[in-house]
Each structure stands twice: as structure tokens, then as C-alpha cells.
């Protein structure tokens, strides 16, 4: 019994990843009157702990391995649904919550992120407690599906801010560099014909000078009288 007089809800959490197990533990224990009594890292352990500890709820990661997860073999991590149905089949009255892939949501925001249990309804997040899920569980199979959503943390927020600041700075620098390049290009376009024109003018001047010196009479020199 908890302080409010309602019976304590005992929970077993099953996920291969220790960080995800701890996160899910924090999520469910935030609800008053809920206590995590065991954690499991594979399906066999989850079934054993469920039989030994007899929890009212088992929260299961869908990518739970049967015994061990193998890298590059996705088939080795698919016992989530089997564990959930197995637990409810073995323990009459027990409920299993199968989370829709909690790993990306929790990993993306880091271990310090505050996560919530609930479900997406279209684009909207509907927060749910374990007792809400318990109330809606089908008495026949008692497996319910839920999502985990992690809040943006201060660290991830400041990281995003830093990234956006860097993007703005580098964007500004790229803009200035682009303009400088464009200006250089324009200058090349103006400068080349101008230099070409100058060269032609010099050559023309030299030619005219040559022609003039050839065909014109020499300028008489002023005679000097020697006394």
C-alpha cells in the first residue's frame, strides 16, 4: 500500500540496454504508488523475473533479444512481443506494456532527459500513466502498447543553440566570400577589356609614331654660330 491507500503497482522493466532500462524505471517510478521491483536484459530473464516476482506490470522494449542480441542480425532482437504475451499468458491478471521502440527517443536526448509514458494520437502526445494503461487493457490478452517521449534537455537545447549560432556565423562568412568572388569576377570582366584596349592603344601609338618618323622631314636643328 502507498501513502494514498491504493496498492503499490509492482513493475518489472525489460530492455537489453542498461540506459534504456534506467530511463524507463525513472519514467514509471515518477507515478505515485509505482515501484520497479526488477530489471531484465533479455526475454528469458524477463520471464523468470516475472514468474518469481509476480509484478502487476511488465514494461517491455520491443527489440528485446531472446537470450542475446547479435550485431548485424536484426532477427536476434525481436522477442519483445513474445515476452509481453508470454508474461500475460503465464501470470493471470498481469499486464504487459510493449513500448514502441523507446531507444531512439531516449538515446537522442541523452540519459538526463526527462521522459514520459504516453501515446501519440495523430501529431499530439497524450500522456498516460501505468494505471491508465491498466484500465484500458483488454481482459483477454492484457498486452497494451505505449510510446516513450523524451523532453528536450538543457544540454541538447544549448547544443542546438550552439549549432544554430555556428550555422549563422558560417553562413555569413560564406555570403561575404561569395560576394567577394562575384566582385572579383565582375572586376575581371571589366578589367580585361580595359587592359586589352590600353594595349591596343599603345601598339597603335607606336605604329603611328614609326610611320610619322619615317615619312616626315627631319626637323632642322638650330644652327649655332661659333665665334
Amino acid at each position: 500500500m502507498n501513502k494514498r491507500g491504493s496498492p503499490t503497482l509492482r513493475v518489472v522493466v525489460a530492455s537489453e540496454t542498461p540506459e534504456v532500462r534506467d530511463q524507463i524505471t525513472r519514467v514509471v517510478e515518477r507515478e505515485p504508488g509505482v515501484r520497479v521491483v526488477g530489471q531484465a536484459h533479455n526475454s528469458i530473464e524477463a520471464m523468470t523475473k516475472a514468474k518469481d516476482l509476480r509484478p502487476e506490470v511488465t514494461v517491455v522494449d520491443p527489440y528485446l533479444p531472446y537470450l542475446f542480441g547479435l550485431d548485424d542480425v536484426p532477427l536476434s532482437r525481436m522477442s519483445g512481443l513474445d515476452t509481453a504475451t508470454g508474461v500475460t499468458g503465464e501470470l493471470p491478471g498481469a499486464m504487459a506494456v510493449l513500448l514502441s521502440n523507446p531507444n531512439p527517443a531516449l538515446r537522442e536526448r541523452g540519459p538526463e532527459a526527462v521522459a514520459h509514458l504516453g501515446r501519440y494520437s495523430g501529431d499530439f502526445w497524450v500522456p498516460l500513466r501505468l494505471r491508465d494503461l491498466q484500465a484500458e487493457a483488454n481482459p483477454k490478452d492484457r498486452v497494451v502498447f505505449a510510446d516513450v517521449w523524451a523532453e528536450e534537455t538543457q544540454a541538447s537545447h544549448s547544443k542546438a543553440m550552439e549549432l544554430s549560432y555556428q550555422l549563422v556565423v558560417w553562413g555569413g562568412l560564406s555570403l561575404v566570400a561569395g560576394f567577394a568572388l562575384m566582385l572579383t569576377w565582375i572586376m575581371v570582366f571589366i578589367g580585361l577589356p580595359l587592359a586589352g584596349g590600353g594595349l591596343v592603344a599603345i601598339l597603335l601609338g607606336l605604329v603611328i609614331k614609326g610611320v610619322a618618323s619615317r615619312f616626315s622631314s627631319p626637323i632642322p636643328r638650330a644652327e649655332t654660330t661659333e665665334e
Binding site: P62, P74, L75, M78, S79, G80, L81, D82, T85, G86, G89, S100, N101
Partner: peptide
Amino acid sequence: GKVALQMQLNVANMLRRRVTVDL
């Protein structure tokens, strides 16, 4: 979404369970 492909397991009529064989 995500779909689990399951197969019914019958072991001498004692262990009747659906087992996921692919995701």
C-alpha cells in the same frame, strides 16, 4: 510502422505460444 510476423508454436499440446520470427 512496424509489424511482427508470428508463428504458432505447438509442442506436444503443452506449450502453445506464438513466436515472432521476423520484424
